[in-house]
Simulated scan of single mutants.
Amino acid sequence: MPRHIVCLTFDFDAQSGFISRGLTTPTPLSRGEFGIVGAARILDLLKAHGIRSTWFVPGFTIETYPAVCEALVKAGHEIGHHSWTHTAPALQTREQEEEDMVRANEAIRRLTGSKARGYRSPAWDLSANTIDLLLAQGFEYDSSLMGADYRPYRARRGDVVELGKPLGFGEETSLVEMPISWTMDDHPHFEFMRLPNSVMPGLQSPRTVLEGWRDEFLYMKQSVDWGVLTYTMHPYVIGRGYRMLHFEQLVDRLVHEGAVFMTMEEAARESLPHIVKRTNDAAAF
């Protein structure tokens, strides 16, 4: 029987993403603080539909807003690892990345009673060490890579990349990769950000964006018998009123279309019989 899974995931950064970029004046910090307002709205929507979701929460957020994070756990949502400082691993030494990973996992353990099973990298930019560190820390899945859309796969380590040569595929690991995409992320579509050397325009219509998100699910339904589609959202982004209106409509449509809502941990475990080896081009055919 066809089965089409949806993972609603929320990167609960609060102010951490602004702080890690050096944006520490009152206005950008207040943008992150709005995530507390957005989180309450999202929790109400999920409760109304009986949907459990996954929240990737930096240690910063857990220790800054403990009562809100406790509400997430009480509501039955999965708490995933999203670093402590929201610094991209590619910008850290191995020692810095490991220290940050351990510190954040301890914050999650204090909050939930156990360490996280899933990881999502800040800025979706893994370092050459991240996979090794995740395996050493006992993670079951990662959700930071974009090598597929509806079919989880095994994360690799040790790819050999040299300009002018074909890619040398590395070793497939036991870590399940739950693929994501910038197109299925609210932040680049909606957030206006003026940075020192660039401007991220954002501010698109949620009607247009979320129609595209709906169509992505419809294509999954028509193209595969079993699949997982992951949506990535940020409470301070999707939590704005007119975006919530369209998000609610999207959830209603997904329910109508027969979507099976799961936490990422649940979906990663269900995916195991569906994973195929993909270290060469024959895996796609």
Score class of each variant (00 low, 15 high):
Leu72Lys: 09
Ala155Val: 04
Met101Gln: 07
Gly170Leu: 08
Ala71Val: 00
Val73Ser: 09
Gly118Asp: 03
Gly158Arg: 05
Asn129Gln: 14
Leu163Ser: 11
Arg110Ala: 12
His81Gln: 04
Asp100Ala: 00
Asp149Gly: 04
Val68Arg: 06
Ile108Met: 04
Pro89Trp: 00
Ala75Asp: 15
Pro66His: 02
Lys165Thr: 02
Gly147Gln: 13
Val160Ser: 13
Val73Gln: 01
Tyr150Asp: 10
Asp125Ala: 15
His86Gln: 00
Glu78Lys: 12
Leu91Arg: 14
Cys69Gly: 06
Gly113Val: 10
Ala75Met: 11
Gly113Tyr: 12
His81Ile: 01
Ala75His: 08
Ala107Pro: 10
Tyr150Ser: 01
Val102Glu: 10
Glu162Phe: 06
Arg103Asp: 04
Leu72Ile: 07
Leu126Met: 10
Asp125Asn: 15
Ser144Arg: 08
Leu135Asn: 09
His86Glu: 01
Glu140Asn: 10
Tyr153Asp: 03
Gly76Arg: 14
Arg154Thr: 04
Asp132Met: 00
Glu98Tyr: 03
Gly158Thr: 07
Gly147Tyr: 06
Glu162Lys: 15
Glu97Asn: 02
Gly80Asn: 10
Met146Arg: 14
Ser144Gly: 05
His81Pro: 12
Thr130His: 11
Ala75Gly: 11
Ala136Asn: 12
Leu135Thr: 08
Glu78Phe: 05
Ser114His: 15
Gly168Phe: 11
His77Ala: 08
Leu134Phe: 09
Arg110Ile: 02
Gly168Ile: 03
Glu70Ile: 01
Leu72Ser: 09
Ala136Phe: 00
Ser114Tyr: 11
Tyr150Met: 10
Thr112Asp: 08
Glu99Lys: 13
Ala107Thr: 15
Cys69His: 12
Ala71Trp: 00
Tyr153Cys: 08
Val73Tyr: 03
Asp159Trp: 14
Ser144Asn: 08
Ser83Pro: 04
Ile108Thr: 07
Trp124Thr: 03
Arg156Asp: 04
Ala75Lys: 14
Pro89Thr: 02
Asp125Lys: 11
Asp100Glu: 12
Ala128Pro: 07
Ala88Lys: 04
Asp159Met: 09
Ile131Pro: 10
Ala67Glu: 15
Ala90Cys: 11
Ser121Trp: 02
Asp125Gly: 03
Met101Asn: 07
Ala107Gly: 14
His77Trp: 06
Gly76Ile: 09
Arg156Asn: 07
Tyr150Ala: 09
Asp100Val: 00
Gly168Pro: 02
Lys165Met: 12
Ala90Gln: 06
Ala90Arg: 11
Leu91Phe: 14
Glu70Asp: 04
Ala107Asn: 10
Gly113Asp: 05
His82Pro: 10
Ser127Phe: 08
Ala67Cys: 00
His86Arg: 06
Val161His: 07
Glu106Met: 06
Gly164Val: 10
Gln96Lys: 05
